[in-house]
């Protein structure tokens, strides 16, 4: 399931309902991304997330479908916020539920790696020197590239 929203979310409530009533699930893996108060460019006092309505939902659905094709996932939840956020606030939640932990861990890491480089979101940081658009990081491209198309397990 994909959710895009301005509001915060409660990871405990979200995890409690993930795969609820499905006794096949043996483990849930979670990633929660937060706004930091500093970046490579300096101190950060706020961050605004812009996105491309329509394409964002489609791209996240494509990424979820790819994860489900690669791993035996029982349930997936991706929540991504947009709008202006302050340091310490939650940005994103990725949670995967599977019978065994390895698929849940791998699929969760895959989802956040692909999300960062493929879902149309852009971060604009505010700091003492003004606002700046965050540059894409080569490390994120490298992380996403680890999950190549030809690694797909049928």
């Amino acid at each position: 399931m994909i959710r895009l929203q301005r509001e915060d979310f409660d990871p405990g409530i979200e995890l409690a309902s993930l795969g609820e009533g499905n006794p096949v699930i043996g483990g849930i893996c979670t990633f929660v991304g937060l706004v930091r108060d500093c970046s490579a460019a300096g101190p950060v006092t706020a961050m605004t997330l812009e996105h491309y309505p329509g394409m964002t939902e489609k791209e996240l659905a494509r990424i979820e479908a790819e994860a489900r094709a690669r791993w035996p996932i029982e349930d997936v939840l991706i929540i991504h916020r947009h709008g202006r956020l302050l340091p310490g606030e939650r940005i994103v939640l990725v949670a995967t539920a599977s019978a065994h932990r390895q698929a849940a861990f791998d699929a969760c890491q895959f989802l956040i790696d692909w999300l960062k480089t493929r879902a149309p979101f852009w971060k604009r940081e505010e700091g003492p020197a003004g606002a700046r658009w965050v540059e894409a990081r080569a490390e994120d491209d490298d992380a996403a590239a680890r999950w190549r198309e030809d690694d797909r397990k049928e």
Binding site: L115, K116, R118, W133
Partner: peptide, 10 residues
């Protein structure tokens, strides 16, 4: 058609 910088979400 949309034009934008490389994505920086997550």
């Amino acid at each position: 058609i949309a034009f934008f910088p490389p994505m920086t979400g997550g």
